[in-house]
């Protein structure tokens, strides 16, 4: 089932197009890995979906409805950003409570398993200003998963996390997919995410070069690792 559809989406910053005419559909029950060089437009793409960036052209639909002024569509979305920064004077527990409160969720409606699994249950009274980068990312991961989202957007989710925590976060992303959710992950570290991904979207210079299932990529290139398959595939595809 199609959940998210980008139709001719473009974003221009001054004279530069960060995204050019992107057409893509993301379905229920899949993990799509969004990859591409630095500054290729990956973050702009997901920010357009999240409503953080307003597309210059085109439209994005979620479950058939064009996303626009009404923020309620974000009820189903969980987002883990690349860089997190929280109000310095609040504690971890207060932040969790705040976001729950803002989303209007009751205690039974939130999923607290990740808090314990990432070892944050013993640090709930810790000030957010005193956190290491890794712990900030763990807090960010909890916030993304806590509202039980059916669409999960993660921007470089493993950056800054220790291997154990990274594996835990990706396992939960896998669970969201298995429960019928849609997961979009941008990552530079292909090996970490490729085991999880169903399809790969490759963006270069703002254009979507391809959006293909993993199996097709491996079959077309004869390679068994994404890091080796991508260059082969790019040399075969016609530049946009």
């Amino acid at each position: 089932m199609d959940r998210i559809a980008f139709t001719g989406v473009g974003k221009r910053y001054g004279p530069t197009w960060a995204l050019r005419h992107v057409d893509a559909v993301f379905r229920a029950g899949e993990v799509v890995m969004v990859i591409g060089p630095n500054g290729s437009g990956k973050t702009t793409l997901i920010k357009c979906l999240l409503g953080l960036v307003h597309p210059t052209e085109g439209a994005i639909t979620l479950d058939g409805k064009i996303i626009g002024g009404d923020p309620s569509y974000r009820t189903v979305i969980g987002y883990m950003p690349q860089i997190s920064q929280f109000p310095a004077a609040l504690t971890i527990g207060q932040l969790f409570h705040m976001m729950q409160d803002i989303r209007g969720l009751g205690p039974a409606e939130v999923d607290d398993t990740l808090i314990k699994e990432l070892g944050l249950d013993t640090q709930l009274n810790k000030r957010l200003s005193a956190l290491s980068g890794g712990t900030e990312q763990k807090v960010s991961a909890v916030l993304a998963f806590r509202s039980r989202p059916s669409i999960l957007v993660m921007d470089e989710p493993t950056a800054g996390l220790d291997p154990l925590a990274a594996r835990t976060v990706l396992r939960h992303a896998d669970r969201v997919r298995n429960e019928g959710g849609t997961v979009l992950v941008t990552s530079h570290l292909m090996e970490e995410v490729e085991a999880l991904a169903d399809r790969v979207a490759y963006i270069q210079d703002g254009s979507l070069r391809f959006l293909l299932p993993m199996k097709e990529i491996f079959q077309a290139t004869g390679e068994d690792r994404l890091s080796r398959a991508i260059p082969v595939l790019l040399s075969k595809t016609v530049p946009v």
Partner: peptide, 17 residues
């Protein structure tokens, strides 16, 4: 400027700008 990233996090919640 200090709360910009947190403002981003608020802006992806189901509340208006």
């Amino acid at each position: 400027y200090d709360v910009l990233e947190f403002t981003q996090l608020l802006a992806v919640q189901p509340i208006g700008r």
